[in-house]
Design a protein around this nucleic acid. Sequence first.
DNA 1: AGCACGCCGACT
DNA 2: GTCGGCGTGCTC
Length: 731
Amino acid sequence: MFPTSENQRETIVSVLVPVAVPMAYTYKVPAGLHVEPGTIVQVPLGPRQVLGAVWDGEPDAAINPKKLKTITRVFEQARPLQPDLRRFVEWVANWTLAPPGMVLRMVLRSEEALEDEPPITGVRWAEGRQPDRQTPARKKVLALVEDGMAWPKSGLAQAAGVSVSVIDGLLQQDVLQQVQLPAVPPAAKPDPNFAKVQLTLTQKEVSDGLRAAFDKGTSVSLIDGVTGSGKTEVYFEAIAEALERGKQALILLPEIALTAQFLRRFEQRFGTLPAEWHSEITPKKRGRVWRGVASGDVRVVIGARSALFLPFDDLGLIIVDEEHDAAFKQDDRVPYSARDMAVVRGHISRFPVILASATPSVESRVNAEYGRYARYLLPERASGAEMPQIRAIDMRREGPERGRWLAPGLLEAMKTALADGAQSLLFLNRRGYAPLTLCRTCGHRFQCRHCSAWLVEHRFQGRLVCHHCGHFEKMPETCPTCSSTQSLVACGPGVERIAEEVQSLIPEARTLILSSDLPGGAERMKREMKLVEEGEADIVIGTQLVAKGHNFPKMRLVGVVDADLGLAHGDPRASEKTFQLLAQVTGRAGRVTGGGLGFLQTYAPEHPVLKALMDQDQDAFYKAEIEARQVAGLPPFGRMAALIISGPDKPSAEGFARALARVAPPDRAVTVLGPAEAALAMVRGRHRYRLLLIAPRQFDLQAYLRHWLDVGPKPNRGLRVQLDIDPQHFL
DNA sequence: AGCACGCCGACT
DNA sequence: GTCGGCGTGCTC
């Protein structure tokens, strides 16, 4: 690969560039410079300079030598990407049908990481020297530096209570001198023995099992524990074990859950904050963490899915918390599932991976049942609090009068809770006031002009909003078709409408809406979450964002306004998603106060998802769902791929069908759920169409797709593939 | 004519 | 992913 031939021929190497080209390119190595596989380099590509990594495999000698360009820069200080990481990049590229360069791009996402950090300069007393004239300000500064310690300039000025110009004056007279300060480490070393916690008997058993997994090399464990059962405490013990063995650890959290609260819990256990990695981290910090991870200075990273591609020096454990969460899936660029790829990374580098959830994904449950994963159960709340009682309200018999949405039984329970000083939560996963507006006179329905979804009325903003593409218009006074006035009616409820109903029926309660679209942004949301936490609201009406994150200690009652919502979707995972969401939401009830209550308003009280929730019988849900999937050939028993066709065409079934026929004619081995099916309704954004292919396990779906990708439009032009396949069988 | 936009191929 | 080239259609 690196001939230093006698006849002084120039060396050539493979270089992978972070661009959507199908393979590694070939470059010349400048004379006298050493590169090896993994070395990070800068190379010319077309009209620009890009980062890249020297890659494995023979460089292509067949390329016209006149075309070959030379590596412009070698990043000698940055350590080469390790063989395991390079294999991981290749694996992910192969799996996702994405160009390997696009996966490498996720590894090289911090440009700052490669440059040396500009040294931090500080000041120190030049021993013995005194200023020409003493002033009170100068005296204060000199008192601080007397001991010979070095200070950052602004820090010293602040500590002395003087302005920076005083320091500058002293520097001028050489009373102070400039010195280099050591670089700030991105995170201190966590101490596995900082604050050992008292574990319950069950927790201890699980933690012993997890610690033992380190001796097995590759292993995956699933912690299946109810909300409040202490999953976190238990997997912290696995992190302690990794640290004791001198290994690095990575905790992956869904983006939403990266809360200060979680970081504080880590700090309490290990005595220091972990390094963080997610989209909000500043470029400078990002560079420090990247370098720290590569050098081994950073021992534990807590991050969102992209942290999986960090160049760890010696990674020995990955934890995927809330492993069922959809936020682990990336839909754009390289469409990967961080949960699945974490398992792959653990497999390649032979270390344990831990998946944790109160409501595991069906895939993980199946893998556990078939013995591919070790399964650990934490069935009880560590505080001893009871799980809430959940009952259905049959809306056919116990429902409210026409035009109202809350059943009398639910309202009674809310009033009782209010009288006892406890909080209630009404959950409805629908923003706005009403999901459909129509004209009573002519039947006109307000539809989005871009994507044909119904427009949702947002009464506080006085707008009609499309929840698909974000398009909005002012709420008109008159019908745009027949010009009738006062004829527009709102159909169905959203959170705003439920809040209106609560305010009119229980006016003495302090009500609060928690919905992502309310004005004030993330700041206001944080404040309001805090208000709820402190008991400053009696009745909270919320969309799905109340399911995650904050705990509400005074919440006793949870009412699901429409428990059927989401069950009748075209989405093949509708049941699973609804089960997980409702289990989380009802789990908010009575976590600390005990005796929590859950109500499910439904027209289908016999539905297996709702029955499982009421009976507190998760197993019943998984059993029913697994059977249904086996019959339908859905994951994890079949394999599913979505072909996404995007383009500027206006939505039209004809154009879509034409594209489909050109790209992926139906095959006897695969089921194509085309535009006519509900599958399309699942994600019909602007300029985007998706169809689902479902193939049996033994069918080589990737080869099939690869074939049609070659025949059809270029993969990076209008056509994208998203695979929803559990990789467990392919390791 | 001047340009904005979309499409398409090339990039070693 | 990003650039440059080229065709189409619209505006000053």
